[in-house]
Computed example of a mutant assay.
Amino acid sequence: MVVAVHPDARKFLDITAATPPLDTQTAEQNRAGTARSLPLTGDRRELAEVQDRLIAGVPVRIYVPFDAPSQAPTFIFFHGGGWTVGDLELADSTVRDIAADAGAIGISVDYRLAPENPFPAALEDALAVTRSVLLGETGLGIDSHRVAVAGDSAGGNLAAVVAQQLRGDQPRLVHQVLIYPVTDLSSLETPSHREFADGHFLTNRNLRYFYSNYAGKADRTDHRLSPALQPDLADLPPATVITGECDPLRDEGELYAQAMSEAGNRVTAVRFMGEVHPFVSMGGIIEDANVARRLVGAQLRSAFGSANHSIAPA
């Protein structure tokens, strides 16, 4: 059966069709190419405050929406880009929208990039920021009992691994949002990898480039690289998993959602029909991006509301 690409996604594919394979260019050239796509990410919603600073020595951008209260709920966002080409600017419009819709402070993490800084550098930065937020070390008036993690693609991988690594810690993360996450670097053998190996923006060739940059010589079956290979998925934060129908990462994201659910975790999984990787970032050209951002905001708002209720005095 031939899968129909959404008309908005087709426009995106047409615009990006001439992009050369990433392994034919330097990382710097690929980053410059990614920067040229910024106009496609959508308008930047005005918020009460946006500031760049350090948390645990890691550069971050902090987004405070108009309705952020004292002791505010917070989500920590890890951008996509194959651990190689993404940055705070690429994620800016997405995090602004989610922060406003969630009524929460957003913290976007400018983690170290590969291949200059291979695994586990990005994960170390993600964990350092998240731990600092949970321990109340930021001075931002954050409610440490209402903290979530989120990310797209490579950032979804980091969010999933952080949720696994911190599940026994207190305070607990209250939610994880995984947007077409990479969950298994050891294989490209799912049906969606085979069906969308080429011609749908994120090719298997480019995935191999990203995985080589990030994993380096590490064992790709290590669950800190491939969270789907973690044998114990019990007691994880509730999850929202978003996938695109025409994305090679579709199946591994949905299989991870299913595995988390079967392990007893609360999981909401939503597939956007006809959409390609990285549609959630492309709010300026793909309307489903804005739908997905509102969905994530609503899911986080609900999670923060439930957490607030659970810790309220009797």
Rank of each mutant, 00 (worst) to 15 (best):
A91H: 06
A91D: 09
A91V: 04
D92C: 05
D92R: 11
T94W: 13
T94V: 15
R96E: 15
I98S: 00
I98W: 02
I98T: 00
A99V: 04
A99Q: 11
A99I: 09
A99D: 11
A100H: 10
A100I: 07
A100N: 01
A100W: 05
A102R: 01
A104I: 00
A104S: 12
I105T: 09
I105M: 03
I105R: 09
I107A: 04
I107T: 06
S108T: 00
S108R: 00
V109T: 05
V109C: 04
D110Y: 11
D110F: 04
D110H: 11
Y111P: 13
L113G: 03
L113H: 10
A114F: 03
A114K: 07
A114Q: 08
E116N: 06
N117I: 11
P118K: 05
P120D: 08
P120A: 08
A121E: 14
A121K: 11
A122W: 01
D125R: 06
A126N: 07
A126D: 10
A126I: 01
L127R: 12
A128T: 00
A128K: 00
V129D: 09
T130E: 11
R131W: 00
V133C: 10
L134E: 05
L134F: 10
L134R: 14
L135C: 06
E137S: 12
E137M: 14
T138E: 15
T138P: 09
G139K: 14
L140W: 13
L140C: 07
G141Q: 03
S144Y: 07
S144W: 00
R146L: 02
V147S: 13
V147F: 10
V147M: 13
V147I: 10
A148P: 05
V149D: 08
A150T: 02
A150C: 13
A150I: 05
G151R: 07
G151E: 03
G151I: 01
D152P: 07
S153N: 05
S153H: 02
A154W: 04
A154H: 02
G155I: 06
G155S: 11
N157A: 06
N157T: 07
A160P: 05
A160S: 14
V161W: 12
V162Q: 10
A163W: 13
Q164G: 12
Q165D: 06
Q165I: 00
Q165E: 14
Q165T: 01
Q165A: 15
L166R: 03
R167W: 14
R167L: 10
D169M: 14
Q170H: 11
Q170T: 12
R172H: 14
R172Q: 15
L173D: 08
L173Q: 08
L173Y: 02
V174W: 00
V174Y: 01
H175N: 00
Q176D: 14
Q176T: 04
L178I: 03
L178D: 05
I179K: 04
I179H: 01
Y180M: 15
P181Q: 00
T183E: 02
